[in-house]
Write a protein that binds this DNA or RNA. Structure first.
Lengths: 287, 287
DNA sequence: TTCTCCTGTGAACATCCTGTGACCATTTGC
DNA sequence: GCAAATGGTCACAGGATGTTCACAGGAGAA
């Protein structure tokens, strides 16, 4: 089998968009605490930044955080006011107060003002993380399929909120599996996905050798794409490996290389992949 | 599919923290704690009940709680398992663990399993209340009834303040569940809602595989809608996924030319109107 | 080149999904 | 308490979807 392609291909599906990665900020001056916490956050792969002094609400807003960990001591006498303003202005932001010893009244006040949790120092970074995670988990309500913007590739629009793909506003009438397949392929646009990976991500378990389900669904998808968008090719076969999604127009006659229109947010590195001749030849016959 | 008919716009999900009356349960045996807490809850006007021993998940579900305060000590060695099952089945329920001294690892475990907060006894009832309030505040998603404007879709007017839908000023006589269903669907107008999501948002806990309740209520709803507004179709089935709410008119544009078929609707659709409602777009090429 | 393996394809087959009516349990109103 | 309304379960039927199979032709390797 052509090891060359296998090598260029991304080894790990890694992406694992299981949403466990968060973006948070820590407003604190306790260097020891920050250091330990940052280390843990790094290891988790969470984006994070440390703020040494109070920042205005709109600055926090522009960071697009999942959650903010704040030591009220840093805020000084303006703490309550700042907290109230922040929570009022950014109701979607998770706010975790992590501060020194406090009275019940203070904690109640903080929580009433909009804080989502209150941790008393000294505390273990793991507990901070667990609580931040809990806050973010609860916050993230509407982010299921609602907010996911539709993907465009060539003439095809893939709308997750409708479990359907459209060309020129006209539905492709994809079944559920067909849609899951095109969604998966399009999300990995430009990358070659192995059959085994496609299968395991759609069916949820490992593919048995010889199973042709993926091929069959690729054919169904190609048929529907061909019918709705005859001037484009979307799914390209990589012999011995799997499939790659990339919208390529057939209309360009004067060029030896078909123009490729990638989806906006995913920077596919198809350059190295298209270098192999297998792709060229198969792509001609394939949709 | 006709994108054109979008009668209402999404109401802003700005859930206010106003409606402060909650329904909670306390699973604990610490009589002193219970007594003090109950007193405070009474004064706040929160509905609450005290449970002395572990109850099965579906029993908790039937209580329709906003939040549950639980001392893990009552649960004994099964505590983690119980907690995990509960939080898994009732993702909408706020769970506040309020228990004796614990290790960091225990707290992290509890929070990871789905608990929304963890309070260490001894604690002040006011803090318990503040944290329960915080949890419930974040959990609550439905827009408050009084503020939400009535929704219009096709000929149907959905009035949340009356828990009822109307056509031409005439009530559809929807039952509570039927109304909750149409309200949910209409609020997500144009989007496909999965059966599991519909179920969990109406019933408050996870749908078991094979449950047909959603289908049955969709049928009841369709019957009443069909009777009151025969010229429109509102609920569309998406095979293998769920349902989508969108008002679509069946009315022939030119009544003086009855023989003409409206653009976008084939004869198959028309002929089926007399019989069972096969308005399912998945079957029709008109999508 | 030949040979072997892989993929495209159409169709048959099995499975799952949904609409539907009937039935039972529980709640609500009187 | 009774009766009606409401919520929920069940089984059946028809159809949409998913899976398997056999065959043909192409791609890669020796």
């Amino acid at each position: 089998m052509t090891e060359s392609i296998r090598a260029t291909e991304e080894a790990a599906p890694s992406s694992t968009s299981s949403a466990s990665s968060l973006r948070i900020a820590v407003l604190d001056r306790d260097s020891g605490f920050i250091q330990v916490l940052s280390k843990r956050l790094d290891r988790l792969g969470w984006e994070h930044r440390v703020l040494g002094s109070p920042v205005p609400t709109d600055a926090v807003a522009s960071m697009r955080l999942s959650a903010l960990v704040v030591d009220l001591a840093v805020l000084g006498p303006q703490a309550w006011e700042w907290l109230e303003r922040l929570c009022g202005a950014l109701p979607e932001l998770g706010v975790v107060v992590c501060t020194g010893p406090s009275t019940v009244a203070q904690r109640v006040r903080g929580l009433r003002l909009g804080a989502d949790d209150w941790i008393t120092k000294p505390c273990h970074p793991e507990e901070v993380i667990a609580r931040v995670q809990g806050v973010a988990r609860r916050r993230r309500r509407p982010t299921s399929r609602t907010e996911s913007k539709p993907m465009m590739a060539g003439e095809v629009e893939i709308r997750s909120d409708r479990f359907q793909a459209f060309v020129d506003g006209h539905s492709l009438d994809l079944t559920r599996r067909e849609f899951e397949l095109i969604e998966l392929l399009a999300a990995a646009e430009g990358r070659v996905l192995e059959r085994e990976e496609i299968y395991s991500r759609l069916w949820g378990y490992a593919m048995v050798r010889g199973d042709r389900s993926v091929d069959v669904f690729v054919r169904k998808l190609r048929q529907k794409l061909e019918k709705a968008s005859p001037q484009w090719r979307y799914i390209h076969t990589h012999f011995g490996i799997g499939y790659r999604f990339a919208a390529e127009s057939l209309e360009v006659v004067g060029l030896d290389v078909p123009s490729s229109v990638p989806v906006g947010w995913n920077t596919g590195d198809q350059s190295e992949l298209t270098g192999t001749q297998q792709d060229r030849e198969l792509a001609a016959g394939a949709l």
